[in-house]
């Protein structure tokens, strides 16, 4: 029976490793339904994934090592009580050298892990290290509320380019709900706010997450590396409809993005009168 238990304790780590091994092929790994598949959809996300894998390799090695040691110890300890084996257990209070080794070595590894991560963190969060593209200002104000994302874009100026985003709502502003658009391949910044309780802005495919804290306007930047629809959801418990905050982030080319803003302008100014002139003849008239 004791050998059964030794085996029992050895089978589960093997099983665990096996499950982790097949996980990517079974779809139990990073989200894969986005435009980039299982790969992170932003350069920063890729770096985060790299760090994840680095830690994964280190911890897997540790896991395997300790479990093998545990298994060895168990089998040996089980054999020690076999019939006729009357020898006493090894009388040892420990080893100073071993203690020093297994303190210093993990300490170095851990410190390495910590220091190695700083760069990515700084780029993600420290405003001085934000990509220069974001210095032009935010593209939209994303306001989380129970239970949806309300987004305010600055309107288009007379030159057809988006106006700067003002802290206060402007008559020219454009609004959408649960539908954030951004230009692909360009670092864009949004201002994250909440109207009520705490929410969290989570783009799983881009590995971006930032809480929206009541009373704070938080800048968040991201850069989608491929155009397409990405998931946007809430990651901080915000009440009963927490799971309902389903939205999308659409990464698209600059032209498409402007077209989207133009369409938004059009539909937001829709006055219900059927248009008599032929469609598709946009008149950029300032003669109002």
């Amino acid at each position: 029976m004791k050998r059964f238990w030794c085996l029992f304790f050895m089978i589960w780590p093997v099983l665990a490793l096996y499950v982790c091994w097949i996980a990517p092929s079974m779809g139990w790994w990073f989200p894969f339904t986005g435009p980039t598949g299982m790969k992170a959809a932003s350069p920063l996300g890729e770096r985060i994934d790299d760090l994840f894998y680095m830690i994964l390799y280190i911890t897997t090695a540790t896991f395997v090592g300790t479990q093998i040691a545990l298994g060895y110890v168990l089998f040996k300890g089980a054999a020690a009580t076999d019939e006729g084996n009357t020898e006493k257990a090894w009388y040892s209070h420990g080893s100073h050298n071993l203690e020093v080794i297994w303190t210093i070595v993990p300490a170095c590894v851990l410190l390495f892990i910590a220091l190695y991560q700083m760069d990515v963190w700084a780029q993600y969060r420290v405003k001085d290290s934000f990509p220069s593209e974001t210095k032009q200002g935010a593209i939209a104000e994303v306001t989380a509320r129970q239970f949806e994302w309300r987004i305010r874009y600055p309107g288009l100026g007379p030159d057809g380019k988006p106006l700067p985003l003002m802290p206060e709502p402007q008559p020219t502003d454009l609004y959408t709900v649960n539908d954030l658009h951004a230009v692909v391949g360009k670092a864009v910044m949004i201002i994250l706010e909440t109207q009520d309780v705490q929410h969290s802005f989570f783009l799983p495919e881009l590995r971006v997450k930032q809480d929206a804290v009541p009373g704070l306007d938080i800048p968040v930047w991201f850069k989608a590396s491929k155009s397409g629809d990405y998931t946007l959801l809430c990651a901080e418990l915000c009440g009963w409809g927490h799971y309902k905050m389903k939205a999308r982030m659409v990464a698209e080319t600059e032209d498409k993005y402007l077209e989207f803003l133009q369409n938004l302008t059009k539909s937001q100014n829709y006055d219900g009168v059927p248009e008599t002139p032929a469609e598709g003849a946009p008149v950029a008239s300032a003669a109002e």
């Binding site: 402007q170 302008t265 109002e288």
Partner: peptide, 29 residues
């Protein structure tokens, strides 16, 4: 109404309709 009482100088673009840029691509006014 929501923009009526905006006072200039508060870091906010003046919201008077005169300076309001025309919406782009609205057809035929």
């Amino acid at each position: 109404l929501p923009h009526e009482l905006r006072t200039p100088g508060t870091g906010v673009a003046p919201a008077s309709p005169a300076t309001k840029p025309a919406p782009v691509a609205t057809t035929a006014h």
